[in-house]
Nucleic acid binder design. Structure first.
Lengths: 108, 108
DNA sequence: GCCATTCTTGGTTATTTTGCCAAATAATAA
DNA sequence: TTATTATTTGGCAAAATAACCAAGAATGGC
């Protein structure tokens, strides 16, 4: 990592890294419908609870998720309501087929 | 990777992964001002050319960048004009301080 | 108190990613 | 042709990531 990055860029990288994993993206997509506890998310993802817990920890420290403990359960939810918008943006950034056709498009 | 992900999610992950690296994000941000050749980007990033070339290959196969060869140089540019919008979205997804204050905000 | 449940943390191993060097490829100039 | 410059590719060692198991911490029920 030879690059000297601004604090803003560093935070962006942390968010992108947090979301750049199939299970973590799935978790985040699921939370668009509302909060879920860890065991719900374990059922969704299908991994060991400890693995899911670590994924949640990564998403939390990136600032994407918050959590709240109620009784025995810990409920996770999205920090920001704009996640759907975000996903739409992701889809548009690479809207073209991955093979490089040297064409530019207007999206957004 | 126990998760069964839809093709759409798989592509999203590929894009996010491609952008989730300091050098690659820096490269992409730089290309918002217009195309640059590999040696420009090597100067920007400060890594070995081979390293930069591999970063570019990752961004290209994720569908984020296109390239065009002119003479000895290969010029890279963004596939989509909406990258600024995308970055704004990234910033908003985690707009709160990374410590979890159990507060929700409206952004976007 | 003790036990069951939920979640997190520590430790280990396997896999993936990163970044360098050296070599190969491509285009152009001499 | 040979040399020069720009870029890509292969290979390797180091670093980071992922996923499991086992153990620990917190809560609630008995």
């Amino acid at each position: 990592m030879t690059v000297l990055s601004t604090p803003a860029s560093a935070k962006r990288v942390a968010v992108l890294k947090a979301l750049a994993h199939p299970s973590r993206l799935l978790i985040t997509e699921a939370l668009m419908s509302g909060e879920l506890c860890v065991c719900d998310l374990r059922d969704l993802v299908g991994d060991d609870v400890s693995t899911v817990s670590k994924h949640l920890s990564i998403l939390r420290s990136a600032g994407v998720l918050t959590c709240e403990k109620r009784g025995l359960n810990v409920y996770y939810s999205l920090v920001c309501d704009c996640f759907g918008e975000f996903l739409r943006c992701v889809d548009q950034v690479c809207a073209l087929p991955p093979v490089q056709p040297s064409v530019k498009i207007n999206c957004c």
